[in-house]
């Protein structure tokens, strides 16, 4: 663009003007939008699928809950092996040589054994077998605990999560602990215990959410509501309500290779980080669009502006 053109385009307009009541326009806009929004609210309401509780999970899918509790003890759950910011179990996701999560450290420590199972169990009065199991667990060293939990986790997986079909073995108090947690969850006292962790004030649901996500039940609920990220779930909403359609581009990358394949290295396995990077770059691109050659010329080439200003162009014979 020539400097002369920029001068003309930035100078105060000296051509014809028309009456324009900005305040009236603004008030009318607020009133109309408020009426339309109130009408839609009256007609359709808003989405509000009930929250999933641990009680609901433990009652509806006890075997899944029980197996997840065992995984938390054995350290084989998703959370137990997550890495930063929850623990040091793995390096986590990386962008090539950049291990950003790991470098920023464990800022929200989660110890699945104690936070998810042992501490909640100590907050309630347990039946004798569970109380004894707790005592046995707490009186043992970490190596023994780990051996018991790993043995039982392996055996339970082999038995297809059916505790009644697990063959005898060296499991220590693990079956009783998982059973105690299941009873506690079914009674509805695990939800609060997980959140409070023995405290009074608490507003951080991290531990509940991570535990909930380690099982299959929560994931199945999400699949049933079409919310899985691998099937555009990021854009979707429960029921028939509109979702976050503005996330279409973010969601798009998860649907295409290599990002839709978790086994693909390095991109699929680290899709979260790469897509975050791509979207960050694209956002900067949007913000700086007028500076990008090619893109900034499109409005001159595809003359949609002739439609926008059709009246003016006609009147001025442009």
């Amino acid at each position: 663009m020539s400097d002369r053109r920029t001068e003309l385009e930035s100078a105060p307009w000296s051509g014809r003007v028309r009456r324009y009541d900005l305040i009236k326009e603004g008030v009318a806009a607020v009133v109309i939008v408020a009426i339309v929004v109130a009408a839609l609210s009256t007609l359709f309401g808003s989405p509000d699928d009930k929250q999933v509780t641990f009680k609901q999970w433990a009652v509806a899918a006890p075997a899944d809950f029980y197996a997840t509790a065992v995984q938390e003890l054995a350290g084989t759950s998703g959370t137990a092996g997550y890495g930063a910011p929850y623990n040091h179990a793995s390096d986590g996701v990386n962008l090539g040589p950049l291990y950003l999560a790991k470098w920023l450290g464990v800022t929200h420590p989660v110890d699945t054994v104690n936070d998810f199972v042992i501490t909640p169990l100590t907050t309630v009065a347990n039946a004798a077998p569970v109380a004894d199991a707790l005592k046995q667990w707490q009186g043992s060293d970490a190596k023994t605990q780990s051996t018991w939990a790993t043995n039982y986790d392996t055996a339970l997986t082999k038995a297809n999560q059916d505790a009644s079909k697990v063959s005898a073995g060296n499991y220590g108090p693990v079956p009783a602990l998982a059973g105690g947690l299941l009873t506690m969850a079914q009674a509805g006292s695990l939800d609060g215990a997980l959140l409070s962790q023995g405290n009074y004030f608490q507003s951080d649901n991290t531990k509940q959410t991570l535990f909930l996500g380690d099982g299959s039940y929560f994931n199945d609920q999400s699949t049933a509501s079409n919310l899985q990220g691998s099937t555009w779930g990021m854009m979707n909403e429960t029921g028939r309500y509109p979702g976050q359609a503005w996330l279409w581009l973010y969601s798009f990358w998860y649907q295409i290779p290599p990002f839709n394949n978790g086994d693909n290295h390095p991109f699929g396995a680290n899709a979260d980080a790469w897509i975050m990077l791509i979207m960050g770059a694209l956002s900067i691109g949007l913000i700086c669009m007028p500076l990008i050659p090619g893109v900034r010329s499109l409005p001159y080439k595809i003359k949609i502006h002739r439609l926008i200003w059709k009246n003016y162009y006609q009147e001025e014979n442009l």
Binding site: T42, M235, N236, E237, R240, Y241, A245, Q255
Partner: peptide
């Protein structure tokens, strides 16, 4: 709760074109 609250909370209908899918409402 919204006059069509029940209808809005039925299972959503999705349109599929291969790897692409979108809910009718988002569309």
């Amino acid at each position: 709760m919204g006059i069509f609250h029940h209808f809005m909370n039925l299972k959503a209908v999705y349109i599929h074109w291969g790897w692409f899918q979108i809910s009718i409402t988002n569309l």
